[in-house]
């Protein structure tokens, strides 16, 4: 597969369109519907419970164009959250006790109000997670961010699909591994990833292809050993994440002829104990324009919160959001396969 320099949207590719993606993933007639399978968990339909995380997608712009990106992010994407929408998020945080705000994108750092937003959230004494792709921290104009994030005690969660260059660059672009290692060195110097520093640096592994992730614990040991021995860098935890059959990864699956066997693999690996902990149960996802979703994947499929829950933050109502019924489709099998998958890694 060729290296990408722009999003699918920039080329007007059909799978840039959420409806076209849904047509494919919901049209697999010989697979059971996710809701049917979820009944095996024994809790009835999938519902949310206490909200612990507000995940805010502050924009789809990114300096990278990774092949598997579920956001179809890239330098050409113009969708960026405004300061006004950020202010509504802050107001919601003031009214609630949601303890954690998880900032994602695109590259969240590319939002011109990123620092202001982090400042405001920290004033409310909430925990901030920044999903940083690492390479952005080496770009000019962004090199002060590690220090800024250290001062604000942000937790950094970064994709590093392998502890070696080959797989990483294949998925994320030429030179990404070396640049990432250089950024990790800067972060380590500030204390990120070092025991006792209180500054957390976690990595995310996701398979570079149509297969499921290995056990989180075993792979974390491999990552720690190899990254330390080869590059002298350290980190806290590794999260293994399954690739969701949406957006650019869906495009890859279809183009490579792996789509059907991958979906079958996800369904065959359905794990009820992973399913009880899917992240939508305790997360709300805010889109760049303030729309509300059950998770970032539903956001990209334009499947807003529903079943009586508000679909935009201007109508935020915690009572209607807690215990809401989750909007599902066949991509949800990506969260429940094997050891499970979420923004915090395995769930089983």
């Amino acid at each position: 597969m060729e290296v990408r320099h722009k999003s699918m949207k920039a080329f007007g590719e059909s799978l840039a369109n959420a409806n076209e993606q849904l047509k494919i993933i919901n049209n697999e007639s010989n697979l059971p519907h996710f809701d049917e399978k979820y009944e095996l968990v024994g809790e009835g339909e999938l519902h949310a419970s206490n909200i612990e995380i507000m995940q805010v997608n502050v924009g789809k712009m990114c300096n990278q164009v990774c092949k598997h990106c579920h956001v179809d992010a890239g330098p050409d994407r113009k969708e960026i959250m405004t300061k006004e929408t950020m202010q509504i998020c802050i107001d919601i945080l003031k009214q609630t006790d949601i303890p954690t705000v998880d900032l994602t994108g695109g590259a969240p750092e590319l939002n011109p109000n990123f620092k202001w937003f982090v400042d405001e959230i920290k004033k409310l004494d909430r925990h901030v997670i920044v999903r940083s792709n690492l390479t952005i921290l080496k770009e000019s104009g962004f090199q002060d961010l590690p220090k800024f994030m250290a001062n604000h005690k942000c937790e950094i969660v970064s994709s590093l699909p392998f502890y070696k260059k080959t797989f990483t660059d294949k998925q994320r672009g030429d030179g990404v591994f070396d640049k990432s290692i250089s950024a990790i060195k800067n972060l380590n110097e500030l204390g990120f990833g070092k025991e006792g520093s209180g500054l957390i640096l976690n990595f995310v592994y996701n398979p570079v292809g149509a297969f499921l992730p290995p056990s989180q614990e075993g792979l974390e040991n491999d990552y720690k050993r190899e990254l330390f021995n080869t590059h002298g860098v350290v980190f806290n935890n590794l999260y293994t994440i399954t690739n969701m059959p949406i957006s650019r990864f869906l495009d890859y699956l279809v183009q490579s002829g792996n789509y059907e066997s991958y979906m079958q693999k996800l369904v065959d690996s359905f794990n009820p104990s992973a399913a009880t902990n899917v992240m939508c149960k305790f997360t709300i996802s805010v889109g760049w324009d303030g729309q509300l979703f059950d998770c970032d994947f539903n956001q990209m499929l334009e499947m807003n919160m529903d079943h009586g829950a508000p679909d935009h933050i201007k109508d935020f109502d915690m009572k209607k959001i807690e215990n809401r019924r989750i909007v599902t489709a066949q991509h949800c099998y990506g969260c429940t396969a094997g050891a499970g998958s979420s923004c915090g890694g395995a769930t089983a």
Partner: peptide, 12 residues
């Protein structure tokens, strides 16, 4: 081959 990949091995 599938198993090795999904246990965290790479082509090398």
């Amino acid at each position: 081959t599938q198993e090795s990949l999904s246990k965290g091995a790479d082509l090398e």
